[in-house]
């Protein structure tokens, strides 16, 4: 007699299967870099054993901002206004400081209309991952220049771009973001590892991901294309994210060729030296390598800067352990006596 094995779904330490992290089917173009990013977010959160109910998703407007529906169906999400996602996220996360935010934005949403809110959420160090799916073009309105488009880029119906591009990582750095990285949608392994590190970071974590638009902006010689990216990507380091409970095995990382950064929750990012030694805790170095990359026409990827000890906005407020949105009404309305007292004072 033979017994048939029951098919068993593989689960992570949270007891969840990969399906528990899925979203709806994407309605973006086939081959869009954004879809690849959504898949890596799913993979990263599955591997991190994150409970989806502990995450809240936010986005603005644009192709990028549709993508929060393509992952984590079991997480709350709010697709808000163009360029105004940071303020929405800030208000919402104050309701329950134990939640972790994931914001998905685009280059138009962040670097054009949303530049102000982007920079202010950096200086407030709101604990969330802020992903910019950066393709240098407005996709949803069918192909106009964005503020990250390179000088000289030619688009059908738009002509040639005249203006200097915004470098999102540089803007994040000078606004004192506490975690700044750049990646390339065509390098999914790196996207995943950086996302894991960003998610574990306590503070704002910006990941500028060059994510080619296959429909409106994928010329082979363009900065935001797959071909150009694959040919010009220079990774600062190989990144491995090691959760707090896993030991770092020595054989994987030879002594002298790695640099470790311990994140707030005890997890470690191990940056394996490639051609250069790079200190991701040095903001001047980060700005310098970005400038160098720009001068040399490189797509420089990796974790550019991290300050694991920066105070978050929640450290600046005297918040209770109980999430604010769980406080019972008796904690919210001051006593009758206190009003009597104020009324007495107002007799003068």
């Amino acid at each position: 007699m033979t017994t048939q094995a029951t098919p068993r779904t593989q689960v992570n330490l949270a007891g969840l299967s990969r399906a528990d992290y899925k979203g709806h089917n994407s309605t973006l173009c086939a081959g869009c870099g954004h879809n690849s990013i959504s898949n890596q977010i799913i993979a990263a959160l599955y591997e991190l054993n994150v409970v989806p109910e502990n995450v809240v998703k936010f986005s603005g407007i644009g192709c990028s901002s549709k993508s929060p529906t393509y992952f984590l169906n079991r997480s709350f999400g709010f697709n808000g206004l163009h360029g105004r996602m940071p303020s929405l996220a800030l208000g919402a996360l104050f309701a329950d400081h134990t939640l972790k935010g994931i914001g998905i934005s685009g280059d138009g949403d962040t670097a054009s209309i949303g530049m102000g809110q982007f920079k202010h959420v950096m200086r407030r160090n709101l604990p969330m991952v802020y992903v910019v799916e950066n393709n240098g073009v407005y996709g949803l309105t069918k192909g106009q220049f964005s503020a990250t488009a390179e000088v000289g880029l030619e688009l059908k119906r738009q002509g040639v771009n005249k203006y200097f591009p915004v470098d999102i990582c540089m803007e994040a750095l000078v606004s004192r973001a506490s975690f700044v990285a750049r990646s390339f949608a065509g390098d999914p392994k790196q996207v995943k590892e950086i996302f894991k590190a960003a998610f574990s970071h306590r503070g704002i974590a910006v990941i500028d991901i060059i994510s080619p638009c296959v429909t409106f902006h994928n010329k082979e010689d363009s900065f935001h294309s797959y071909t150009w990216g694959k040919e010009h990507e220079i990774a600062l380091h190989d990144i491995t994210y090691v959760p707090a409970r896993e030991e770092i095995t020595v054989e994987d990382f030879e002594e002298g060729s790695t640099r470790e950064v311990t994140l707030h929750d005890g997890a470690t990012i191990v940056l394996k030296k490639l051609e250069r030694d790079y200190d991701p805790t040095n903001i001047f170095e980060a700005l310098r390598v970005l400038y160098e990359a720009e001068q040399n026409n490189w797509l420089l990827t990796g974790i550019l800067y991290v300050n694991p000890d920066a105070s978050t906005i929640f450290d600046m407020y005297n918040l209770p352990d109980t999430p604010l949105n769980r406080l019972p009404t008796e904690k919210l309305r001051p006593s009758r006596e206190s009003l009597d007292q104020i009324m007495e004072q107002m007799k003068f």
Binding site: F78, A89, L90, G91, A92, F94, D96
Partner: peptide, 10 residues
Amino acid sequence: GMAVGAGWAG
């Protein structure tokens, strides 16, 4: 924006 985010979140 902050007020709407907070209102949405309870």
